[in-house]
Design a protein around this nucleic acid. Structure first.
Length: 996
RNA sequence: GCCCGGAUGGCGGAAUCGGUAGACGCGCCAGACUCAAAAUCUGGUAUUCGCAAGGAUGUGCAGGUUCGAUUCCUGUUCCGGGCACCA
């Protein structure tokens, strides 16, 4: 009886669906108490390209873990859903004229089909989609909670804004400094005299969800704001139009208030150190000082305010203050215009224009080219009073620290390079340590040439400087975080609308006066269905075009929408109670399922999604909506599955210039045709003049590199990466080139001189590992693999490829081995005539094979080493086959052990063993110690570290006896070469080393 | 540029706590079965010297610690991910 995976898998799937075996139950109280286990995958964004074999990697891992936990008696929650709002769907809508609702529906259906094909144990009855109004109703609700709350620094938690208002009414903000603007200070009387507008403005500076200003990429030609992704080489990806940074009013989440808690509670999470480190670096806590430098600019001292103006800098090295030779402001710094002298005005304006065209990334990465501009202004050194020149430069970012730095060129590499470049004299404050060739940035030694801190260590000097500055209010100790508040507005259509209405230009939540009593007050605020998604006027989102939606009798609705991470910041809570219409989830459900026990996803979410989710969880915890303040107890990062691309080497097209034009006579431009279809948008091979990307049909000049991409080459090359003439013909046909003359033209340069062993002409292709993506023509669809080999083979092969957390290339060729293994396993159970399992008593050897496997699989699953599990199954089946074992006592437990990996075949075998229920509900077998421990060990015996012989001893043998036996050995004597024994090393169960 | 990873045969990888480097699989080579092919099975397969026995070398590169290093430390090269509006 053959291993007919198609039948087997269909039967298993039908059973699972019919009996709803994967439905997870929230406990009702009178059920037997099972420990819970919440296993979650990062839900996918349903793109139009469908799933490729890389996507399910993490899902298979979580599926194995979920099934294993269930076999071990846990109540398992393992849900799946879709992150369905986002930019790509809108982009696609703009290009094709299909509504995002439609494309999203189609794409999710396709994803669902592909996922179902693989046999996951997801409880689909709990599916969530972030773009479903029933879901985003609660995204909006949580936004309102954040809008209506503030962070109480003294209690280190978020509280309702109503409580802040009563504090203001009684004592002003004396005890609660304003996080949005430290200069806002008022007492109760002042507060009570504020107008409504003034009160709302003030509260906005406290809210966890607030409005402020942020720089965005503005594209005049497209009339829209662009994502970083849509800006390539300084121009818009669509149409190559110029772009610039523009300040716009935006919503933000005040995540910075949580910086310290986000940092400190990392210690309790079972995440990889690397992942925690990335979050720590992102939060970027640094301890230093804030120092005020008085401005010496005449223009300012004459200013109308009359008060002294000063530049505040943040520095992590207050000890180096006597080495300050110049100061640098971010070009966007608010003081720049005020302090710039008349002579420098033009130069400064020019420089600011240049900086507007630069991304933050470019500004931070640039080290070779040093740019900056002198403002003409000077500031006074806080101790010496010496004038210090004030510059602006792109390497200082407005968003970090105070947007201004004190530059110490003798102690900082970048300051040093800047000073050298602009010829600014450098003061040495490190004595002999500073040579003048480069900055001395080591944090060791003493500070010199520095007045009252000369001769002091760095720590002592820093403390003394801060003390001296603090004495008269010119500075103070300061903790700074790199973390910035999260921009929460998008000028887009396909996202959650804000539950905000502007009344007299003041934003109100729809649940508060004066909106509360109108018909606008109910959630969700539904996204209106519109035909077009063109940008609104003046950089507003498309919703600004929908007048009947935007304009209400009470006021105007907010026309921005929420960003992609809004819905994904809390979805793990919704799975616990997905259909609840009166709360985001019932408290009983969230108390029960609690934290996610295991969360699996890619490292690309290290600082975005994972940080925002943690913040939302903390806010909901502080406001007493849930009972835990960290969402993901344990995190596992899966690596990427990369694609394998094949290239045909060719000298002929090297550096050739051709004109792209589809209407040219075919006879002359055959080469170009072929090249173009191979090369389409492939930056590796078609150099893009002037940074341009070519789309089919565009016209321009292209020079070709020496490699041609063989699209989907894995379908054509043989095991030695060779492309035979026949396969090449097939390839051209698949690309729409049926004309043999093309082949002849290409033949001259492409074919190898020698024929293959089979006497065929061939091209030796070059294999390369790249990202698996549609644009690289190397994607492999899991559906094809499942159709050819079955889901069980696919699942096991994905795991067999390598460790879950590292990137590795997909190679379809290797799948045969796993498929052969399953067929071989099948033959333990079935002979030519059918079921051959007997009730014979197993031998000791058979028991050992089984029990070692049970132990290894359990251990491996617990440490997520799934690739070695697959190896162990192979070893076990090889052993049992060699022993001719067809015994129930061995094979029935084996079927259960393999169930997490290959659930379909396990279900089929379970049925043949006569069980009515599903194997999913079986129990994972327990191993017996006596079958997994050995009594003797073959020790490798080394002489001076080199293994020379293997000797077997009992594990409980006496050390002295072993030494005697080893030294008596002829081979050992030979390698000791007559030298006396210096040391005898014996590690029980490991090895023996004789040192002579 | 900064932060975080990774590098082991022709290929994917194993070696779980510093203790026999290359498990398992692919590919390749040889053989069995077959009219033939497929499927299946058996044996071999890091490099190198040697008929063999056996020896030498070998985990990106250069050092270090150790009786012993793929594993720990220092430096370095290359590759991948992230860098705040892709998700």
């Amino acid at each position: 009886m053959e291993y007919n995976f198609a039948d087997i898998e269909q039967r298993a799937k039908d059973k699972w669906t019919a009996e709803q075996v994967y439905k997870a139950h929230n406990p009702t109280g009178n059920e037997p108490a099972k420990p819970k286990c919440y296993i979650l995958d990062m839900f996918p964004y349903p793109s139009g390209a469908g799933l490729h074999v890389g996507h399910p990697l993490g899902y298979i891992a979580s599926d194995i873990y979920a099934r294993y936990k269930r076999l071990n008696g846990y109540n398992v929650l393992h849900p799946m859903g879709f992150d369905a709002f986002g930019l790509p769907a809108e982009q696609y809508a703009l290009e094709t004229g299909q509504h995002p609702v439609e494309t999203t529906r189609k794409n999710t259906a396709r994803y669902r089909e592909q996922l179902d094909n693989i046999g996951f144990c997801f409880d689909w009855s709990r599916e969530v989609r972030t773009s479903d109004p029933k879901y985003y109703k609660w995204t909006q609700w949580i936004f309102l909670q954040l809008f209506h709350s503030w962070f109480d620094r003294s209690r280190n938690k978020v509280r309702p804004i109503a409580e802040l208002i009563s504090i203001f009414e009684q004592e002003g903000n004396i005890k609660n400094a304003c996080p949005g603007d430290e200069n806002i200070v008022f007492d109760a009387a002042a507060w009570n005299n504020y107008t409504e507008q003034q009160k709302r403005d003030c509260l906005m500076q406290y809210r966890m969800a607030y409005q402020g200003y942020a720089q965005v990429w503005w594209c005049e030609a497209l009339g829209t704001v662009l994502a970083n992704d849509e800006v390539v080489n300084g121009v818009s990806e669509r149409g190559n139009h110029p772009v610039e940074r523009k300040n716009m009013r935006q919503w933000f989440l005040r995540i910075t208030e949580y910086a310290e808690r986000l940092l400190s509670s990392l210690d309790n999470l079972e995440w990889s150190e690397a992942m925690k480190e990335m979050q720590r670096n992102w939060i970027g806590k640094s301890i230093g000082a804030e120092v005020k430098f008085k401005c010496l600019t005449p223009a300012l001292s004459k200013g109308e305010g009359g008060g002294e103006s000063s530049i505040t800098v943040f520095t992590t090295r207050p000890d180096t203050i006597f080495g300050v030779d110049f100061m640098v402001l971010a070009p966007e710094h608010e003081l720049v215009d005020a302090i710039t002298t008349a002579e420098q005005k033009t130069a400064i304006e020019e420089y600011k224009t240049y900086v507007k065209s630069r991304s933050e990334r470019e500004r931070m990465s640039e080290v070779k080219q040093i740019t900056g501009c002198f403002t003409g202004a000077y500031a006074a050194h806080p101790f010496t009073g010496q004038p210090i020149p004030v510059w602006i430069a792109e390497y200082v970012l407005a968003g970090y620290g105070t947007g201004a730095i004190m530059a110490v060129p003798s102690g900082d590499d970048r300051d040093f390079a800047f000073a050298k470049h602009f010829g600014i004299p450098i003061t040495n404050i490190f004595g002999d340590k500073y040579t003048g060739d480069k900055a001395y940035s080591d944090k060791a030694g003493t500070i010199e040439n520095s007045d009252f801190v000369s001769g002091k260590s760095i720590a002592e000097a820093a403390a003394l400087v801060i003390e001296a500055l603090a004495a008269d209010g010119r500075g103070k100790k300061k903790v700074n975080y790199k973390l910035r508040d999260a921009g929460f507005s998008r000028q887009r259509y396909w996202g959650e609308p804000f539950p905000i209405v502007y009344v007299n230009d003041i934003p109100y939540g729809i649940d508060e006066e004066p909106v509360k009593d109108t018909n606008l007050n109910s959630l969700p605020v539904e996204l209106p269905y519109v035909e077009g998604y063109k940008p609104g006027p003046e950089g507003q989102g498309p919703l600004a075009n929908v007048n009947e939606w935007m304009n209400t009798p009470v006021g105007q609705r907010e026309t921005n929408t929420m960003p992609g991470y809004a819905g994904s910041s809390w979805y793990f809570l919704r799975y616990m109670d997905p259909n609840n219409d009166t709360a985001f989830a019932d408290r009983k459900a969230t108390d029960y399922w609690n934290q996610v026990d295991l969360y699996i996803g890619g490292t690309e979410h290290a600082v975005g999604h994972l940080l925002y989710s943690r913040m939302w969880t903390k806010a909901l915890y502080d406001l007493n909506h849930i009972s835990f303040d960290e969402p993901f107890k344990r995190l596992l990062n899966q690596g990427m599955i990369q694609g394998v691309s094949y290239y045909i080497g060719s000298g002929e097209w090297d550096n050739e210039i051709a004109i792209i034009n589809e209407n040219r006579p075919p006879s002359e431009l055959v080469k170009f045709d072929v090249v173009c279809s191979f090369y389409h948008r492939n930056e590796r091979t078609a150099a893009k003049p002037q940074g341009k990307l070519f789309h089919a049909g565009e016209t321009g000049l292209v020079s070709y590199g020496p490699n041609i991409r063989l699209k989907y080459g894995h379908n054509f090359v043989d095991t030695k990466d060779r492309l035979t003439k026949e396969k090449y013909r097939q390839y051209l046909t698949s690309q729409g080139y049926a004309d043999d003359s093309i082949i002849d033209k290409l033949t001259k340069v492409l074919w190898e001189n020698q024929l293959s062993e089979n006497g065929e002409q061939y091209i030796q292709c070059k294999m390369e590992v790249e990202k698996m993506s549609k644009s690289k023509y190397n994607v492999v669809n899991p559906d094809d693999i499942v159709a050819q080999y079955g889901a069980d083979t696919f699942r096991m092969y994905e795991m067999f490829l390598g460790p879950i957390d590292v990137s590795k290339p997909w190679d379809t060729k290797g799948i045969e081995g796993v498929h052969r293994f399953l067929k071989k396993m099948w033959r333990l159970y079935f002979g030519d005539g059918g079921w051959i399992v007997t009730d014979d008593a197993p031998t000791d050897e058979e028991y050992r094979s089984l029990h070692k496997t049970i132990k290894k699989i359990g251990d491996d699953i617990e440490r997520f080493s799934f690739n070695t599990s697959v190896s162990q199954f192979m070893i076990c089946v090889n052993e049992l086959s060699a022993l001719g074992c067809h015994k129930r006592a061995i094979l029935e437990p084996l079927a259960v052990v393999i169930c997490p990996f290959a659930p379909h075949i396990a279900e089929e075998l379970w049925r043949h063993f006569g069980h009515n229920g599903s194997v999913v509900d079986a129990s994972f077998p327990k191993y017996e110690d006596r079958y997994v421990t050995d009594n003797t060990k073959k020790y490798p015996v080394a002489v001076n570290g080199k293994t020379r012989i293997e000797l077997e001893f009992a594990l409980d043998a006496d050390a002295a006896d072993i030494e005697k036996a080893v030294l008596a050995e002829e081979v050992v004597q030979k390698w000791m070469e007559g030298r006396p024994l210096k040391k005898f090393i014996y590690v029980r169960g490991k090895m023996i080393n004789v040192v002579a």
